[in-house]
């Protein structure tokens, strides 16, 4: 029995190593699934693995931050970030969300907080939205690690922009027509006064 177990140990080790390699090596799938747990027990996760929208549209990005540890956290700072995963697309996160940083109160053991960001899709392409949670006062606990949420894959479809040519005739015609009506009325009033 002991010999059987001893023979099985290397196999188990190889299986675990292979599974680990498989998890790390698969592009795209693993990073969008889970986040490494923080030793303090703090986790951040989005319930929206994928989002689709088109340029100009707004979407709500929701993230839940949970303290699964045995001790309370200090005050926290949750910071939204966005990156292009296809490359070649310039991303300025400030364009996507006006208020990226949120200060959070200390979380007691077992407590959770849900956050929602209003994000506007600015450019077409594929992007990853994620949140980094860090202590609000870094100097107080310099050894504390950052916690990163599960990223959300955002597909933004291109969309035609406004047709200026269509707006021009209306922009010209409406004031002109109203001006003619006003002038006609004024002329009639003047003629009346002269009579």
């Amino acid at each position: 029995m002991r010999r059987r177990c001893a023979a099985a140990l290397p196999l188990l080790a190889i299986a675990l190593l292979g599974a680990a390699l498989l998890v790390v090596g698969l592009p795209g799938s693993a990073p969008f699934a889970t986040a490494a747990p923080d030793p303090t027990g703090l986790t951040a996760a989005s319930t929206q693995p994928r989002l689709s929208t088109s340029v100009g549209q707004h979407l709500d990005y929701r993230v839940s931050i949970v303290n699964d540890g045995h001790s309370a956290t200090g005050q926290l700072l949750a910071h939204l970030n966005i990156a292009s995963v296809t490359g070649g697309t310039y991303v300025d996160p400030e364009d996507w969300s006006a208020e990226r940083s949120r200060f959070l109160p200390a979380l007691a053991p077992g407590a959770a907080v849900a956050l929602t960001w209003d994000v506007q899709a600015v450019s077409p392409g594929t992007f990853a939205l994620y949140v980094v949670v860090l202590p609000a006062g870094m100097a107080a606990t310099p050894d504390q690690r950052l916690v990163v949420s599960t990223p959300t894959r955002v597909e933004v479809a291109a969309r035609r922009t406004l047709n200026a040519g269509g707006a021009l005739p209306v922009a010209v015609a409406v004031p002109v027509l109203l001006g003619l009506v006003a002038l006609a009325g004024r002329g009639r009033n003047r003629a009346r006064l002269r009579r």
């Binding site: 088109s54 340029v55 100009g56 549209q57 600015v122 450019s123 969309r159 922009t161 406004l162 047709n163 200026a164 269509g166 707006a167 021009l168 209306v170 922009a171 010209v172 409406v174 004031p175």
Partner: peptide
Amino acid sequence: LSCVSYLAATNQVLNFLEQR
């Protein structure tokens, strides 16, 4: 309104503006 609507439809800086 003509100025606002024409600028909204043409301004390149606002070009990412969606129609809504």
